[in-house]
Amino acid sequence: MRPTLFLSLLTFSSLSLSTDAFSPAYHSQRTHRTTILAGSNEIDVSDLGLTLSDLEAPLPQELFAITTSGTESTSRIPSIKDDGCIWEESPDIMDVTLSIPGLRGQPPAALLLDLTKNTATITAFGMAVWSCILRGNCDPSTVMFSATNGNDMVPLIEISVKKLKSGERWGGFIALIGEDSIL
């Protein structure tokens, strides 16, 4: 459209409108059967079939089941950051994968886990070779443990255990590493 024709049409349409068209007015707009009232904070949602009791019902706990994860060093030496402990925490369960460099060459079938309420000890051929104090309390009767071959002959140790208090956040798995660590 040419600019002069556009300006002519704009001028013609402006002349035909009254000043009421430019003043703020209270009006309603209907979109998808939901009425939105301009100038207020109200929305009509009657077509959604919701009742007041639906809005007052508690939210399901599954909405709050946030999973956190992280890594920690499995070495007792502060300057060594091997990230050998990979953990994932839900409100009820702690899942951990340990890759302890000091266990290089140990056959996975020779490794066992001894878990108490707040400690974990890895044994190789019946001798304690690595231990830690946990950041929280767990239920040892719920532990699931497996040891498999990992990269560079370092066994992968997988641990899954329920927390003693549901909903308690540990923020990691290892609080302190024991004296018997062979790293």
Rank of each mutant, 00 (worst) to 15 (best):
M1Q: 06
P3W: 15
T4E: 15
L5A: 13
F6E: 08
L7Y: 06
L7S: 14
S8C: 08
S8K: 13
F12Y: 06
F12V: 12
S14R: 10
S14F: 10
S16H: 07
L17Y: 09
L17G: 01
L17V: 03
T19P: 00
D20Q: 07
A21I: 08
A25L: 15
A25I: 14
Y26G: 03
Y26I: 07
H27D: 11
S28W: 08
H32F: 12
H32V: 05
R33P: 00
T34W: 13
T34A: 15
I36M: 13
G39M: 03
G39Q: 08
S40F: 13
S40L: 08
N41P: 00
N41H: 11
E42S: 04
I43D: 04
V45E: 07
S46Y: 08
D47K: 05
G49N: 09
S53M: 15
L55S: 04
L59I: 05
P60C: 02
P60K: 09
Q61K: 11
L63S: 02
A65K: 11
A65F: 12
T67A: 11
T67F: 07
T68P: 01
G70V: 06
E72R: 07
E72C: 06
T74N: 02
T74A: 12
S75R: 10
R76W: 14
R76S: 12
I77P: 00
I77V: 08
P78K: 03
P78W: 06
S79R: 06
S79D: 05
I80S: 04
I80P: 00
I80G: 02
K81Q: 14
C85Y: 02
I86H: 01
W87A: 07
W87M: 03
E88C: 03
S90R: 07
M94A: 03
D95S: 12
D95I: 03
V96M: 08
V96Y: 02
T97F: 01
L98K: 01
S99C: 11
S99H: 01
I100Y: 03
I100H: 02
P101V: 06
P101W: 07
G102P: 01
G102L: 09
G102T: 04
G102E: 09
L103C: 02
L103A: 02
R104G: 00
Q106K: 14
A109S: 12
L112R: 12
L112E: 15
D114E: 09
N118Y: 10
A120N: 02
I122D: 01
T123C: 10
A124F: 05
A124H: 07
F125H: 10
G126W: 10
G126F: 14
M127K: 12
M127E: 09
M127A: 13
A128G: 14
A128L: 07
S131W: 03
S131P: 00
S131M: 04
C132F: 09
I133D: 13
L134V: 02
N137T: 09
D139I: 12
S141R: 15
V143K: 15
V143W: 03
V143P: 01
S146N: 13
N149A: 11
G150Y: 09
D152I: 04
M153Q: 11
P155R: 07
P155N: 05
P155Q: 09
E158Q: 08
I159G: 01
V161K: 11
K162S: 11
K162W: 07
K162Y: 13
K162T: 05
S166Q: 10
G167M: 08
E168P: 00
G172R: 02
F173L: 04
F173G: 00
F173S: 01
A175N: 06
A175K: 12
I177A: 05
S181Y: 06
S181T: 04
I182W: 03
